[in-house]
């Protein structure tokens, strides 16, 4: 039996991404270590994403609270609004929405940058200059996305909870202390830990897919555009798949 062409392409692409990922672990833990470039990438990827992540986090918390209020009122559990907002934000919405926005901003940027470097022979020039381009370009970016996304998610969650506080106060009056006490009483270690762990996986996926797409960009401006676009699409899909797997695994270990 012969596989259809699209299936062959799928498995071929999956194999190529797997090899590319395996190469990361081969290169990441051997000298020479590119600390300076890694620091620069953390700044570019983490610090420069902060305003966007903060804004979306704030709106996310505010809108979620405003949307939930009518239903909560209907069931007479309006007082539980901080509990439900904090659980939703910290466990699911915060990590996933932040990761998707991160994929849109950072994943596409990495795909376009490396794609452009590939078609203008900058990657070849690096190799000729005694540099391992995979280590210099890919390892540093993937390490930076893996470490920066959890930080951004924590910040986004905090800002989102503040947005939720303002949302609660639009049609009622709740003190900051009371709101935060309810949030702290609701959130357990088992809510926070799996959520943080999955953000490392999201960050790794965004960086790896962006680098893979850029590194294998086809010639010409169309190829660069396609790399950037497919980096976002594929990493978004992978974020949902990782989320699904992590939920199943944490369920098995009794974290849900």
């Amino acid at each position: 039996m012969q596989l259809p062409k699209s299936s062959k392409q799928f498995f071929s692409e999956a194999g190529a991404i797997s090899r590319f990922t395996a190469w990361f672990f081969h290169e990441a833990f051997r000298p020479r270590y590119e600390w300076k470039e890694f620091g620069r990438q953390c700044y570019e990827i983490g610090y420069k994403s902060l305003p966007l992540i903060a804004l979306t986090g704030f709106i996310m918390g505010l809108v979620l609270t405003m949307q939930l209020r009518p239903s909560m009122l209907e069931y007479g559990v309006e007082a539980k609004l901080p509990d439900i907002v904090s659980l939703s934000v910290v466990r699911e919405i915060g990590p996933v929405i932040t990761a998707l926005i991160f994929a849109g901003k950072v994943g596409s940027g990495i795909g376009a940058e490396l794609g452009s470097m590939k078609v203008t022979e900058q990657i070849d020039a690096m190799e000729v200059s005694g540099t391992n381009p995979y280590k210099y370009l890919v390892v540093t970016r993937v390490a930076a996305t893996t470490l920066m996304l959890p930080v951004l998610v924590v910040l986004s969650d905090a800002i989102s909870l503040y947005g939720g506080y303002l949302g609660v106060n639009i049609k009622a009056v709740t003190s900051w202390d009371l709101y935060m006490t309810q949030v702290y009483n609701t959130l357990q270690f088992s809510d926070v830990l799996p959520a943080i762990i999955k953000t490392f996986l999201f960050g790794f996926a965004v960086g790896m897919v962006g680098c893979y797409k850029g590194y294998h960009s086809k010639k010409g401006t169309e190829g660069v555009g396609r790399s950037a676009n497919s980096a976002v699409v594929l990493s978004s899909v992978i974020i949902f798949i990782i989320d699904l797997i992590v939920v199943q695994v944490t369920d098995i270990f009794g974290f849900n």
Partner: peptide, 16 residues
């Protein structure tokens, strides 16, 4: 060996 061989790329390949 590459230190002794220079390469001028067609696209210049300057780092943007």
């Amino acid at each position: 060996m590459r230190i002794r061989i220079g390469f001028l790329f067609q696209s210049n390949a300057l780092y943007d």
